[in-house]
Amino acid sequence: MAYVVGQGGKKMVLSSAGEKWKDFKSTLTRHHILPFINEKEKLRNPPELYKFIEKANWDAFVASRLSE
């Protein structure tokens, strides 16, 4: 799939995508990691709502969010 972006639009599209990616990671952290910081069992698998997240990616994401 491809999109045709007008003159100068590439920067805007990439910036918007970056903001949305950051918001998604923040939402995952606030709603699905931090509330269960003391319940490691609940952090073993991605949330049911986000079944498309592969376990290996989820494990790496959780580890990165729990590290200092």
Rank of each mutant, 00 (worst) to 15 (best):
E54A: 07
K20T: 02
A17F: 10
G18R: 09
S26M: 09
V13D: 07
A17M: 12
A63G: 06
H32P: 04
G9N: 03
K11V: 15
P46E: 07
V4E: 00
A2E: 10
K11A: 15
K55Y: 08
N38S: 11
M12C: 08
P35V: 04
H32N: 14
S15V: 10
S64R: 10
P47M: 06
R44A: 11
H32E: 10
V13L: 15
F52T: 03
Y50Q: 07
N38D: 10
H32L: 08
K11L: 13
A63S: 12
A60L: 04
F24M: 04
G6T: 12
K25S: 07
A17E: 05
S64F: 10
R44N: 12
K25R: 15
L49M: 11
S26Y: 12
R30Y: 15
A2V: 05
I37W: 09
L43I: 02
T27W: 08
E54S: 09
S16E: 13
F61I: 01
R65D: 01
K20V: 10
W21V: 15
K22R: 07
V4M: 04
L49K: 14
Y50R: 10
M1W: 00
S26T: 13
M1G: 06
L14I: 08
V5W: 01
F36Y: 15
E48V: 07
L49S: 14
V5G: 03
E68M: 00
D59H: 07
F24S: 02
S67F: 13
A60K: 10
V4I: 06
K20Q: 13
R44F: 09
L14Y: 04
F52L: 08
D59F: 02
L14N: 14
I37G: 06
T27E: 13
G9R: 07
K10W: 03
V13M: 14
F24T: 07
W21D: 11
Y3I: 03
P46V: 08
I53T: 01
A63P: 01
T29L: 09
N45C: 07
V5A: 06
N38K: 14
A63H: 04
F52C: 01
N57I: 00
M1D: 06
T29Q: 05
S64C: 07
S26E: 13
L43T: 04
L34W: 03
E39C: 00
E19H: 09
A17Q: 10
D59Y: 01
T29W: 04
K20C: 07
A63D: 10
T29N: 09
N45S: 08
G18W: 02
P35C: 05
M12Q: 11
K22F: 03
P35W: 01
F61C: 03
E68W: 05
F52H: 08
E68Q: 06
L14V: 11
V5M: 08
I37Q: 03
G18M: 09
I53D: 00
D23E: 11
P46T: 02
K51C: 02
E39W: 03
L49C: 05
I33Y: 03
K25H: 10
L14Q: 13
N57E: 04
N57A: 07
A17V: 14
L66Y: 03
V13Q: 09
K51Q: 10
T29I: 04
G9C: 00
G6D: 13
L14M: 13
L49Q: 14
R30I: 14
S26C: 11
T29M: 04
L14S: 11
G8I: 14
Y3N: 08
N38A: 06
N45K: 13
K10R: 14
W58L: 00
N45T: 07
F52K: 04
E39P: 00
E68D: 12
E54K: 14
K42N: 15
